[in-house]
């Protein structure tokens, strides 16, 4: 598979514990393919196996079994070849906190075997590109969260990697820091870099990734473009906002779908339900509300959010398990 930047087949990774109850299956037969030059989102809740996946791909952790290839090289037997081609932005800053930004970047450049002068030039470029030029000698531990993430990202780009792993790159950042990281990631796309991005934020995957793999309990439970995932899980939805929250119960019974599929938000006086035929559903709901004498403030058709997609997919996973 020459056009695959990442190819994972049946990866298993179990964490320690001699007793059966201590054993945790972090990866449980995970399959994944990422096409070169794309941004691929790996979406899942805490404990789904996202970080384990990234650590396996970045040669930090050996899979127990399965075949894992990055840039065409095996992460176990050809780890060094993989390391020449990847950049890693982990969940926690992988920086020397005691040193300054420039010192960090020069050190990493030297460890990528750039010469002294080349390393200095590269550090300058990256500091400027990530707007860190005026941090002087300040140690990294005195940086703000956003600055630290930007420096961390700069450090993972020291040698323009073919493949960049971003493990929950915006977790713990304020909205401004998040926007900074997003724009930095967008600027990488188009340069030919393949990006694998894990996130718990559905919005983030939707914003940045061309394809998304939804991961739960160490497996991929769904895979596709954001639009495909949305239409695969129930398609369009109808939202109804009532004037009086007290009538929500009565309105639920009127909707042309099983009650189990309806979500209710009492604070916003909102009902939301999946529909198959848009126009039939819209006119049917409006007529039923009128006949029952229930006042609606708003009735609207919309595409599902990724949150709903995710709840749908993991909920289905629970039933199967």
């Amino acid at each position: 598979m020459a056009d695959m930047a990442i190819s994972v087949e049946g990866a298993h990774k179990t964490y320690g514990g001699k007793k059966a109850k201590d054993v945790k299956k972090a990866l449980d037969g995970l399959d994944l393919r990422v096409v070169r030059g794309t941004v691929h989102g790996v979406l899942g809740p805490n404990g789904a196996g996202k970080t384990t996946l990234v650590r396996v791909l970045a040669t930090l952790l050996r899979p127990d079994s399965g075949r894992v290839e990055v840039a065409g090289y095996d992460v176990v037997t050809e780890a060094r070849a993989v390391r020449f081609r990847i950049g890693l932005l982990g969940q926690h800053a992988a920086l020397d906190e005691e040193l300054g930004g420039r010192q960090n970047l020069e050190m990493f450049a030297r460890l990528h075997h750039l010469g002294a002068r080349h390393a200095r030039v590269r550090a300058d470029e990256l500091l400027e590109r990530f707007d860190l030029g005026d941090t002087g000698r300040k140690p990294v531990r005195a940086y703000s969260g956003g600055m630290r993430r930007r420096l961390d990202l700069a450090a993972s780009l020291v040698t323009d990697p073919e493949i960049l792993f971003l493990d929950e790159p915006t977790t713990g950042l304020d909205p401004r820091g998040r926007a900074e990281v997003w724009s930095a990631v967008r600027s990488l796309v188009g340069g030919g870099t393949t990006v694998l991005l894990t996130t718990q934020y559905l919005e983030e995957a939707d914003q940045l990734a061309g394809r998304i793999s939804v991961v739960d309990r160490g497996r991929v439970i769904a895979d596709g473009t954001p639009d495909e995932l949305k239409s695969r899980t129930g398609g369009d939805r109808i939202d109804v906002v009532l004037r009086d929250a007290g009538q929500l119960g009565a309105a639920v019974a009127l909707l042309p779908v099983p009650e189990s599929g309806v979500s209710v938000d009492v604070d916003r006086r909102l009902l939301s339900a999946p529909v198959t035929d848009r126009m039939t559903a819209l006119s049917g709901v409006v007529r039923a509300l009128e006949e029952a004498g229930i006042d609606a403030e708003d009735v609207a058709l919309r595409r599902p959010t990724l949150d709903e997609v995710f709840l749908h997919l993991t909920g289905a996973g629970e039933v199967a398990a």
Binding site: R55, A58, T59, L60, R83, L88, G90, A93, A94, F108
Partner: peptide, 9 residues
């Protein structure tokens, strides 16, 4: 965290 970067280089 920096040890992860060293080990992935």
């Amino acid at each position: 965290g920096v040890i992860d970067r060293f080990r992935s280089m």
